[in-house]
Design a protein around this nucleic acid. Structure first.
Lengths: 193, 193, 193, 193
DNA sequence: AATGAATGAGCGTTCATTCAT
DNA sequence: CATGAATGAACGCTCATTCAT
């Protein structure tokens, strides 16, 4: 098996384990076992646990951004864009589940430095959404509101429906997720009657 | 000092520490020191760390339910009730922050048994909300939707605004939290224009 | 068994092991086993391996200095003093063997900081001897020479006869050690004939 | 490149590294890198680290003996011979520094088997010196004394002045080393007055 | 009953050694 | 044959749990 394959195996195993058990509760032994490699092998690719974690997080956020940027069109309105981006994101739902879980985890790494890493990632996403929301408020497409709060809620809502919910019941279908995202973000629950 | 007092001291210390540092990062030494008791004393009340954690979680959920039950009135409509319950809950926001944090710290521990405990607690809350949502759908107060999904989102939304957001910016004011909860749950973002 | 006893047990076990195997090759497991305590116990007394090592070294050097200061008399000449100090030191030969071994070991700790520790200790001893040698040169008691070199050789000579030699043959008797120290330091090997 | 050349490269690299960092702190990776060969290549010549170490030690001692045998003349007296041998040895001081360092790094490894190897080497040197000393005692050139003790001290003295001292101050000059060796071994420190 | 010193399983990490290429 | 990626035993250290006091 090639080195690249092994590296990928490790990354996938670590991603799975981090997503399932969190940072602290994920042991390198566990990762090695899931990846079906020796423990030492991990350290040929990543200098330590923290770096392994960071790489996974970094990869996830990069992919998210790439998808969003590829999908969003200036000439479409906010909710159309929202609809399309959700569509695109949900295509990769499983991979994101990882990031989503991680981003929820209120981890306490030992080092405060490491603690930042997640917050920083979240900031990137929220910041990106924020720009779009601000535009849409200016356009009058959505109600006046704090763009940061709204962006943050959008992220959390997506996380809740995509990943968290699965602990409660079987996963929602793509269409259902989109439907509920739009329900809360666009129209609200109140019966029109 | 009475045994009951000691037990309470331990519970409070543990709650504080779990909320502040998470499950893994909370050491029994820490709890003992905060509680101002010997480390061994903890084990006269709780068989192990996990059970201590469970009891705190259970206590939190019980309190939440009690507040909700005290507040909800059959003769009020859904959104009025929602408004009032939020009001009541936010009064104890700080204590809840604990529960919220814990519920975020998803599966930070290795044992599947411990894993369940959180899910169970969440189930109780969601189940309770579900009943109310179902009623409101029947009444035509809110749009037809999956009550479990909606309940779950409500819980997550509350968590997001109450606790998670604080990592990003300074905490929201009570009034702001209520405002945003209602924005998403009742009317949605779409500009009426 | 009292805590003080345990601490002493650990110190003695570590001293023995450091002396026998050196710093790197001494494992905490080994020390724990020799001391007949759990591995964790060591860490209740010493924050880490390095500190354990430092304490042993520090203790040895302090004792050496105390003995020397108690023994040396300004009103005696250099070789008389040398004779008496050797007498006093050899009384504790076994305990010193430890320090002696350590001071020879050209250890490579991981940290450069730790590396100093031994050199510093050696400097203390050599510095102390140096003062005495300088005085004796001024008095004309011993030949003009570099006091630092001579002091250093004195230390090494003592180490060689006291500890190192034991790997080659059975240990020398106290009287023999004194005799040979004086042979090299005072008169030399050359036959008077 | 020929296999013999590779073997030599490995030996030289290992010698350099052992001398510089000691046994434990020398990694096979390091040796391979310095020798500019693959790590696996080392194992085609030496079954393990210990054997590599042994070979280097043996090589060093062989060279020492060869120099001594070439230099010593039956028709010269003890101190003349000592003077000449020191002269010859110090010519290769740098290479010996390696051996000296190693012989100081007493029992830095756990295995008793490895432990022996150093002692054996030391025995060879001491044994060789011993023969010469015995002769000189018989000749009445030097005082009656235990030849083994004297030989051992000679070795240690040489080590102390050649290598150990460098940790304390800058290295001594060749002439200084010879001067001090003779001072202690021949005349002693006592002022003739 | 309350304690905290003692414990050892388990952690992240290193590195001598192996073996598929 | 030469290689270096892969390995896992062994390290220093932590902390939930126990138990003598």
């Amino acid at each position: 098996m090639s080195a690249v394959d092994r590296r990928k195996q490790v990354l996938e195993a670590a991603a799975k384990s981090f997503a399932l058990f969190g940072y602290k509760a994920t042991t390198m032994d566990q990762v090695a076992k899931i990846a079906n490699v020796g423990k030492g092998t991990i350290y040929t690719f990543f200098t330590n646990k923290e770096e392994l974690f960071d790489e996974i997080l970094h990869g996830a956020i990069l992919e998210l951004k790439r998808i969003a940027e590829r999908t969003i069109r200036e000439d479409r309105d906010f909710f159309d864009n929202l609809y399309c981006v959700l569509d695109a994101l949900l295509e990769f739902r499983d991979e994101h589940a990882l990031f989503i879980k991680l981003s929820q985890e209120q981890r306490e790494f030992g080092t405060p430095k490491a603690n930042d890493s997640l917050t920083k990632v979240e900031n990137v996403i929220v910041g990106y959404l924020q720009g779009i929301v601000e535009n849409s408020i200016r356009n009058g497409e959505i109600k006046p509101c704090d763009p940061q709060v709204v962006s943050f809620v959008m992220l959390r809502l997506y996380a809740a429906l995509t990943a968290d919910f699965n602990n409660l019941r079987e996963p929602l279908q793509k269409e259902q997720i989109k439907e509920y995202m739009l329900l809360f973000l666009a129209e609200g629950l109140r019966s029109p009657g």
